[in-house]
């Protein structure tokens, strides 16, 4: 997915999952100390903590592995130059 020099889709996915991981894990940790008024079934599993951590790990993996490289930034610039000429 680098043929035209654009940033990989996996990078976008990584960024979003990282953000989700941070939000959901933080929310889960908060609820460890402040249990919700209406706990869900199997609350003791703390799914929000470990699922948030899973999202964070997947997100970080994709973000780092597919971090935009120089040729992608160059492709981005080339596309902008071409558009300006048009």
């Amino acid at each position: 997915m680098h043929g035209k020099g654009f940033i990989s889709i996996w990078f976008f996915i990584g960024v979003l999952l990282t953000a989700y991981g941070v939000l959901i894990t933080a929310s889960g940790i908060y609820h460890l100390y402040t249990p919700p008024e209406h706990p869900v079934v199997l609350e003791n599993l703390h799914a929000d903590v470990w699922w948030g951590a899973v999202l964070l790990l997947i997100g970080l993996f994709y973000t780092i592995k597919f971090w935009p490289k120089k040729d992608e930034a160059a492709g981005h610039q080339r596309a902008e130059d071409r558009n300006e000429r048009q």
Partner: peptide, 12 residues
């Protein structure tokens, strides 16, 4: 969803 997913996971 309501049975198993608390705040955050419900949004997901």
């Amino acid at each position: 969803l309501a049975r198993y997913c608390g705040p955050g996971l419900l949004g997901l």
